[in-house]
Nucleic acid binder design. Structure first.
Lengths: 345, 345
DNA sequence: ATATTTAATACAAACGTGTGCAAAGATAAA
DNA sequence: TTTATCTTTGCACACGTTTGTATTAAATAT
């Protein structure tokens, strides 16, 4: 015999059966009343609804889903939310979700493949209605996303994507825009342009590198330096990189930075060394610096159209959830990013 | 008669019963094998585990929870994640969760009471293991949190809290630190100090206002101006406020700002008007500006110890989940924030 | 009056899992 | 051989819902 000690706070949650018992009806009647089935008499419906309201009845989603009902929860997976690119998208998506009756649940991988995998498993286990993902830098293998498809959970990639998974994707024109700014710098007279980017395992950074290199080739520049930063994109890392670059010979005379945080690090050290921008060093960065207006000189940057990315991703996912788009379909939307010209080059 | 068209992609998820059927054992045996019950023969266990692995079996959490099992998902609710204060905490908590076997699911209220309510309902419906919350500015009523307690879901407040809900809370010393910086400004010779804060419905802003006012009273200053900003804390709003303040007579000679975004707005407009900092205007802000090091002059700010807030909140919640802290217990932890002295006053 | 339709409710099965208990099979002891 | 102990597996129910069908009660028609 086993004695069970009930925690004094432990409240059994009120169920449809409890209501049925109290009101002397069958629980199926309660269920129908709550779901506004016409088959239940006005009078009893009122009774049931009132009781439910008074006792704060909440549907048990676990039971509901077990019955095979779909739900309204969307998972959003991002590498991190410290960077404005992602936090802007999270914000926008939260609002879109709310306006359309979905609840957005945000997961952060911190750029870790392992955590990403675990999150995907959790999503499957809990049977989310859909997933919107931008993958971690660590992610070389995409099996876990294939798993999602196996379990028939709609999936949309944005920005950082897995090429080999057939599913809707939203990207920006990384190749073209990077080629464009590289050309812009060349035409401005810069000769030694460094391209600062992430691991080329990720489409975003690979495309940017290719865009940079293609233009360097076009203009037959003799200086070519596409630097892949494997560390996290932090201000500190930006400082380190700049110091190393500046000690090199020949020194670069322009930098294209893939990340705002790196850019800030560069600016800090440049200032401390008295490096003049844009005279000694030209700079263009992906993404807006929050305090851009009080930085002298203001930095030319690439507006990544976060809002549009969020909008498109959301629309695609909802269509998948509604079966208006098939599960294996591979739609690719390209968002055109824009150069915002300031005075840093 | 109703014909049912099965979506070609629609895969029934593999269950414990499927495995049982394929391997000619009872599903209870499969269940035991998967949970490493010693009662199942080594040989069959191997068979089952292999089959499960090969077919990517994932436990159905809905079924599991329906059986009354607890889970490992923690909900984190924040007003927004655009502000570094919150995004830092989200980051830290995600890592803590991961390290301790929990999955953190982040919800953003966008400062909206209604959305906050809905999120709480979702959390109850899905039966999360626990919740960590910083409330929205709109939130005047706290019934929804009482509901959480009713459903026996552990709850920890941090930073912005509901006073009347008895549950663990983690705050910073808003009153003391604001009093301290007010005194600091007074001693520096500033005579007309404006305090820029949020609605006093929220403890954080109320405490800060009280701290400011108490010190203004102590020193019998004749200028007193605690301004409650009801709009979102954005750079644009910061600009507007500064322009209004600067047109007033008498002009303020110092500003205490509750938000980094407001501060940036102020700095932008101050610069455009040629206002000298700290000579014409002193400034202190709550929270670090990401690009602080390249802003001239550097801004004195209050370090809110996000990391410690996250750590304490997490520990408290986990203790509640483990029943080491009772559900109604009202523990209050105060984190001591610190002034980081720079040259803006 | 009885037969027929309609409205309202009850019954039972199912979703996927875990678990106490019974049953069967195997091994050891008598 | 029988009996006792131990190991392994099967059975059945429960969790909270929904829903097709059966049942009852009420209303209408004959």
């Amino acid at each position: 015999m086993h004695t069970f000690v009930l925690n004094i706070n432990m409240q059994k949650r009120i169920t449809i059966k409890d209501i049925a018992f109290e009101l002397n009806v069958h629980h199926s009647t309660v269920s129908r009343a709550l779901r506004n089935d016409q088959r239940v008499k006005e009078e009893t419906r009122e009774l049931i609804l009132n009781y439910a309201r008074e006792h704060d009845y909440q549907t048990n989603m676990n039971a509901l889903q077990l019955r095979g009902k779909t739900n309204n929860t969307i998972a959003l997976i991002v590498p991190n939310i410290n960077h404005n690119f992602f936090s802007d998208i999270v914000s926008k998506l939260t609002n879109l979700g709310y306006a359309n009756g979905y609840v957005i649940s945000v997961f952060q991988t911190n750029e870790k493949y392992q955590l990403e995998r675990e999150i995907i498993n959790t999503i499957i286990k809990y049977n989310f209605a859909g997933v919107i993902v931008s993958i971690a830098k660590d992610t070389l293998q995409c099996d876990h996303f294939a798993l999602l498809k196996k379990y028939a959970i709609p999936l949309v990639f944005f920005d950082r994507i897995c090429e080999d998974i057939l599913t809707p994707k939203v990207k920006i024109n990384n190749f073209e825009i990077t080629a464009e700014i590289t050309e812009y710098l060349i035409k401005k007279g810069y000769k030694k342009i460094v391209h600062l980017t992430g691991t080329t395992n990720i489409n975003v950074f690979r495309d940017r590198q290719n865009g940079y290199e293609s233009m360097i080739r076009n203009y037959e520049m003799e200086y070519k330096n596409s630097l892949q930063v494997s560390d996290d994109f932090t201000v500190e890392v930006g400082k380190d990189i700049f110091m190393k670059l500046w000690r090199q010979s020949p020194r670069p005379d322009a930098i294209i930075s893939s990340s705002v945080h790196l850019t800030i690090g560069i600016l800090v050290e440049a200032r401390s060394l008295g490096v003049q921008i844009p005279k000694d060093l030209g700079i263009i960065t992906f993404g807006r610096i929050v305090s851009s207006e009080i930085i002298e000189p203001q930095i030319t940057f690439i507006d990544q159209q976060e809002s549009e990315i969020a909008q498109l991703s959301f629309e695609l996912l909802v269509k998948m959830i509604r079966h208006e788009i098939q599960l294996g379909e591979s739609i690719e939307k390209i968002v055109r990013s824009q150069i915002i010209y300031k005075s840093s080059c």
